[in-house]
Amino acid sequence: MVNGKKSEDVAAGFSLHYKSKEGAVYAMLSECFKEPCVEFAEDVATGRLYELIAEGLKRLDIPVLPDVIKGLRGDNLMMGPMEGPVIGKDEAILNIYHRLREAYYSLFFPLYVVPVESVYKAWKEGKDEKGYIMGDPAIEMKKRYGMAGIEIPEIYKDTPDHIFLLLEYASLLCENLEEESRAGFVSGHLDWVEDLRNDIYKYSESHFYRAVADVTVSFLKGERTNLLIQRR
């Protein structure tokens, strides 16, 4: 049982939309890195996000510490006393929405954390992290999108290797190709997320986003194991 819902229900929810469990998890993690919208806040508030990801990871046999994954629950975000005697569902969701937005933007502005692959792949020497967008990873992703007939929003034309685009692309691969076929992409374009996680920890105290980072890292570790990719 997961929070009053039977696990079969959750599974049913999965298969409604996703052919593969990995595809589902990639898609949800991608969503976590996008600018929060009200619907996303609702998913967080209702615990759906937490449940789906937890279930997905469980079914894939990817171990994640319960404490870590609990960070995806909404209660972390509802800090401080609630206003008014009675709070409706909408207010609660809006409350979480605002907190999410604040945490998201504080994390990613003033741009000390830029979750773009090119930034993490250029010139890495210990503390000395010089980062540039439009690196080779970006050019390669542009080529990939072009060949596959995929368009990305204009606003991200200079960051086609933003993490949410990469995760969404990975989801696309899961849904359309055999497992082995995505090994190249996963090993080549998703091997920098540990460093991103370290930066997220360094520049933010948000439990939620730290949890997102941790879960993503664990999930990708599991992916690599399953796809038999060695790292470093």
Binding site: E31, C37, E39, F40, E42, I150, I152, Y156, L172
Partner: peptide, 8 residues
């Protein structure tokens, strides 16, 4: 689940 697809 709310999910905005950026890849079209």
């Amino acid at each position: 689940f709310s999910r905005r697809s950026f890849l079209k």
